[in-house]
């Protein structure tokens, strides 16, 4: 029971560190941060809201900064054989699985905002266009590829334990 509790606490910590990655990237690229908060939909998560980055490099750097931090930590933990702390490893695995999910994640934002329909509409009606493009992307061939890769990563991470 304690291991579950500890794993969840580590997961919470890694979620915050993930958001920290976005904040550092935004600060480094001088992208104004609008809000740091938490949301319950579509699942409970923290978020950092910024003004839309000017260049594509800025956009992807910002979006993938959180994931980069998580994978960096994962590498350090892995090299050090997670210092024997199993819950640390589980918490990190949960975080990696969640942040790569094909339903609502930074990867999804990156893919959806790269779709033709989104680019065509520009930033007008951001939310409605995003919703429409997200619905079109979900369960498409590319989405199934994403889903399969995600499943592959989950199996890989579980096998490593």
């Amino acid at each position: 029971m304690m291991i579950i509790l500890h794993s969840l606490l580590f997961f919470l910590l890694f979620m915050l560190i993930h958001e920290g990655g976005h904040i550092i990237a935004a600060k480094m690229m001088a992208i104004p941060i609008q809000k740091v908060g938490a949301s319950l939909k579509p699942y409970p998560h923290f978020y950092v809201s910024v003004t839309w980055p000017r260049s594509i490099i800025q956009k992807y750097t910002y979006l993938f900064a959180g994931m980069a931090i998580s994978w960096l930590i994962f590498s350090i933990v892995q090299i050090n054989d997670y210092w024997g702390i199993k819950s640390l490893y589980y918490g990190l695995i949960i975080q990696l699985i969640v942040e790569m999910n094909p339903f609502h994640s930074d990867i999804i934002i990156a893919i959806v905002t790269n779709r033709k329909g989104f680019k065509k509409a520009g930033l007008n009606n951001f939310e409605s266009v995003y919703k429409k493009e997200l619905a079109a992307y979900h369960f498409s061939a590319l989405w199934y590829l994403h889903f399969s890769l995600w499943m592959f990563v989950i199996v890989l991470l579980l096998k490593m334990t």
């Binding site: 889903f147 499943m151 989950i154 199996v155 579980l158």
Partner: peptide, 8 residues
Amino acid sequence: FLFIVFGN
């Protein structure tokens, strides 16, 4: 998906 995850 569930079969693969739980199986693993």
